[in-house]
Simulated assay, not measured.
Amino acid sequence: MSSNGIIHVRIDERLIHGQVATMWTNTIKATRIMIVDDGVVKSEIEKTALKTAVPSGVKLSILTSQGAIKNILADKYIGQKVFLIVKNPRVLKELVDGGVTLPQINVGNMSTKKDSKQIKKSVSVTEEDLENFDYFVKKGIKLTAQMVPSEEEVPFQNLLKK
Rank of each mutant, 00 (worst) to 15 (best):
E128I: 15
K117I: 14
P55W: 08
R10H: 08
S61G: 03
D37K: 08
L84A: 04
E153P: 09
D37V: 10
D12N: 06
W24Q: 08
L95S: 04
E151F: 09
L15Q: 01
V91M: 11
G79R: 13
N26I: 03
S124C: 11
S3T: 13
A21N: 02
G99Q: 05
D75R: 14
S116V: 05
Q19L: 02
L92N: 07
V9M: 05
Y135N: 11
Y77V: 10
E13C: 00
G67D: 14
D134Y: 11
K142C: 05
F136D: 11
V125M: 05
K51Y: 00
E152N: 15
T27M: 11
G98A: 11
K81H: 03
E44W: 01
P103M: 01
K161C: 04
N71I: 03
G140T: 10
A145I: 13
T112C: 06
S116L: 06
S150I: 12
D38M: 09
Q66A: 07
D12G: 07
T22Y: 08
I7H: 05
T31I: 01
N132T: 15
P149L: 12
D37E: 06
A145H: 14
I69M: 10
E153Q: 15
I78A: 12
E131D: 12
E13R: 00
D115A: 13
D134N: 15
S56P: 07
R90V: 13
G5M: 10
A53P: 09
L92Y: 10
P149H: 11
G39S: 13
I72H: 04
G67Q: 15
I85N: 09
E131C: 01
V125L: 07
L50Q: 14
K138Y: 06
S61C: 00
I28K: 09
Y77R: 10
A145P: 00
I33F: 10
S3E: 14
G108V: 03
E44A: 12
S2P: 00
I72R: 03
S43K: 11
E128V: 13
K29C: 03
G79T: 07
S2T: 07
V58R: 02
K93G: 06
P155S: 04
V96K: 06
D38F: 08
S61M: 00
G99R: 02
M23E: 09
V154N: 07
V148G: 08
L159C: 12
R14G: 03
M147P: 00
T52V: 15
T25V: 15
S111H: 07
N158C: 01
I105S: 00
E151H: 14
Y77A: 09
L63Q: 12
L95F: 06
E46W: 07
K42W: 00
E46Y: 07
K47C: 13
K120G: 07
N158D: 15
V86A: 13
L160K: 09
N132W: 06
I7Y: 05
V100Q: 06
D12A: 06
S65W: 06
K81P: 00
E128W: 04
I6W: 04
Q19Y: 01
E153R: 14
I62L: 08
K87W: 02
I6E: 10
P155G: 05
G57W: 08
K70W: 04
K142F: 02
L95P: 09
K87M: 01
E152P: 12
M110K: 12
V41F: 04
K121G: 07
I69S: 10
